[in-house]
Amino acid sequence: MSAYIEFTDVCKRYQMGDTVINAVDHAGFSIEKGELAIILGASGAGKTTILNILGGIDTSDEGSIIVDEKDVSRLNDSQLIDYRRFDIGFVFQFYNLIQNLTAKENVELAVQICPEHLDVDEVMSQVGLDERKDNFPSQLSGGEQQRVAIARALAKNPKLLLCDEPTGALDYVTGKMILSLLQDTCKKTGMTVVLITHNSSIAPMADRVIRMRSGKVESVTMNENPMPVSEIEW
């Protein structure tokens, strides 16, 4: 029986003028259901590409990506849309909230297209935004915006929550809050969370740490006892 998420020999190449860049070079790893996995790597290590491929935003050139027994690499365009729609929650580095919608409405935006969504207000309170529901993104702080983004991703009730440097644009405290929110969500709901970061100091919070370098998986380590975020210092 294979893992919940299974990356096998995945390659992704970009044509840059005359040269071909191997963004992902025969990468392979697996993540079990309910795990909080962190993909760690420097800029250009190919971690974002891995996340994009996993999230159905980008496609791989080689290899297979199995998510919950579904081969994502073989999905066509509209199947990929459905995959994104029903199976994936995405949290962006820059939150990517719709400026013209209030916090709640931004969550609702995702919910609109997802039949098996969670209750919006519940999710909002879950991320601690009860008070700021009707505020526009511009009226919210970065952390709050990221929480809206997380709420938006969670409200869809996805199989997989993908976070692209969720703390990248945040200060230390806020970043910590966001990370602990993600950790809690993983623990409480048993949702599989994949988080990419270049900050290796947050690795202890993960169940599984996948280190990447130059498009290759350098190592995969398991933390038997992940550390709560509050205990991590960086």
Binding site: G55, Y83, R84, F92, I98, L109, I113, K156
Partner: peptide, 16 residues
């Protein structure tokens, strides 16, 4: 563009 890309990532289909 960014907004459109975001809603695409959210899983909006072409028509939407």
């Amino acid at each position: 563009v960014r907004e459109i890309a975001t809603v695409k990532v959210l899983g909006f289909n072409h028509k939407e």
